[in-house]
Simulated assay, not measured.
Amino acid sequence: MTERTSSMPGNAPFEGDLSDDLALALRLADEADRVSMERFDAPDLDVSVKQDATFVTEADLATERAIRRALETHRPGDGIFGEEYGASGDAARQWVIDPIDGTANYLKGIPMWATLIALVVDGVPRVGVVSQPSIGRRWWGATGLGAWTATPGGAPRRLAVSQVAALDEASVSFQSIGQWDAVGRVDALLALTRAVWRDRGYGDAWPYMLLAEGRLEFVAEFDVKEYDIAAHVPIVQEAGGRFTDIDGGDAIDTRSSLATNGILHDSFLDLLRDRRA
């Protein structure tokens, strides 16, 4: 089974009710939180290095297995594509999973990591859940159902991106200098930081959720896989933002991402395009 090329929803119409799928994704996140938190900051955590030189922990593997078991019970006809165990089943309806996004933080006991769960329908991310149990936060969204967040015991709050309309008033998150350097875009990064009000590297899933909450106007990454970003797409878009790759394309398998509040998306694209190495 090969991975399916996926794209952003954009203005593509969707017929159907995703309420049951979103409810299931939230239950999957509950189980993932239980498993991942059992080993977080454990002094004897088992860590190994994968063939691509990235880390994997016993918690990454156990969390993905738990999600897969639940999906095999509740959605036996759906496909699954996870970071640790690959793709299986029909890709027309495919659950895309990153059991621990931010493994380097997880293994260091740094609480900035998350479980990412998405449902991709006919190649388009339609349901997304981002759960960050170490700080007690969760975000979720689905096409036509809005984007939401909640803290433990708190009532769900609907998300909306900011209305900032000027680059010099924008706050941005760029992941890391190393990512931009690796693709020959340091000049573009420097131009970006000089054009905006504030720049920070918050890292991994959290900045996308800050954008959906209206606290940032721009998030961009390189060397990202589908499971790194699929869950973010419906949350950002249902919050009113825009999500493309770094050059404005709609595919999520091009190894780059650009999320904005929508208002400034074209301005950011123009800024980065003018300084592409």
Rank of each mutant, 00 (worst) to 15 (best):
E15D: 06
A166P: 00
A166E: 05
P111F: 02
I246D: 00
D60I: 06
L190T: 12
N261W: 08
M112L: 14
S257N: 11
G79K: 11
L116G: 07
D20A: 15
G79S: 10
E3Q: 14
G201N: 10
S171W: 04
D30A: 11
H74G: 03
A91F: 08
I97K: 07
R275Q: 11
I263Y: 01
I117V: 08
G240R: 04
I117N: 10
D21P: 01
W206N: 01
A59D: 09
D250N: 07
G123N: 06
T57I: 09
D20T: 10
L216G: 11
V130Y: 03
L71I: 10
D122H: 14
S267M: 01
T260W: 15
A142K: 12
L119Q: 11
Y106F: 15
V124L: 12
G262Y: 04
A29M: 12
T244Y: 02
G89P: 11
W113K: 14
E31K: 13
L272G: 02
L264P: 03
A205F: 05
R126T: 00
M112I: 13
A12S: 12
R198G: 00
S131I: 09
A92Y: 02
S171H: 10
T151F: 13
E226R: 12
P207V: 09
T103S: 12
D21A: 11
R93C: 11
F81C: 09
R137M: 12
D187C: 10
V186K: 02
